[in-house]
Design a protein around this nucleic acid. Structure first.
Length: 196
DNA sequence: TGAATGATGCGCT
DNA sequence: GCGCATCATTCAT
């Protein structure tokens, strides 16, 4: 990447209040260096899950074997299996004293699109990453990647000049509690959002 | 075009 | 055992 103007984001990006990170993460580039090829995508949709006081957050019941990564340092990947067959990718935020994370829900393919399509056959480009389960399936992410440090070289975020013109804030999807919290943000201009 | 439903595994009570 | 931060397919309008 000799000519890249992009810059990898450091831990200080993640080590802030989650809603600040959520607002800044829309439009950023997520990179996954697989064994064969570099995959990247522009984030267009994400949700925040913040602390033990958020009943929809996995940390609501205190620390467990599954959610312990959220209790660790910020800037790590938290990946879990949902409904028996889908993986969801989160980025851990906030200082170590507070368990919180951001769920990546939608993105636009940038590079490695051929790999994504082989992972998710019969999908058009805009349908490869428009949902948390599809995002992980198309990129090839699973629980093997849980806990990876986002300041290392396998998974990380790159800054980018792109700024979304309008970010829509709605209630989070697929939860049964805390629906009054408008902690789902998405880029109004994108056609890779899971649900409008 | 929207609502209902089955697939499917694991963490937690 | 039950309940999920989902998706694709089926069935009804």
């Amino acid at each position: 990447m000799a000519l890249s103007k992009n810059k990898k984001l450091s831990r200080s990006f993640y080590n802030r209040p989650t809603l600040e990170v959520l607002g800044d993460i829309i439009g950023k580039i997520v990179v996954y260096n697989s064994l064969s090829e570099k995959l990247s995508a522009r984030i267009v949709e994400a949700e925040a899950y913040i602390g033990e006081e958020d009943p929809a957050c996995h940390a609501a019941g205190g620390i467990t074997n599954r959610n312990q990564i959220m209790y660790g340092n910020s800037g790590h990947a938290y990946i879990y299996i949902i409904y028996g067959m889908y993986n969801c990718l989160n980025f851990v935020t906030e200082p170590k004293s507070k368990p919180a994370a951001i769920l990546l829900r939608g993105a636009e393919p940038v590079s490695g699109i051929d790999i994504m399509k082989s992972n998710s056959p019969n999908k058009s480009s805009s349908q490869l990453l428009n949902g948390p389960g599809k995002f992980c399936r198309s990129l090839g992410l699973s629980r093997e990647h849980n806990g990876l440090d986002l300041t290392k070289n396998m998974i990380y975020l790159e800054d980018d000049l792109y700024k979304p013109k309008k970010i829509i804030k709605t209630e989070r999807i697929g939860i049964s509690t805390a629906k009054e919290k408008k902690w789902r943000y998405y880029d109004a201009a994108s056609n890779c959002v899971s649900r409008k």
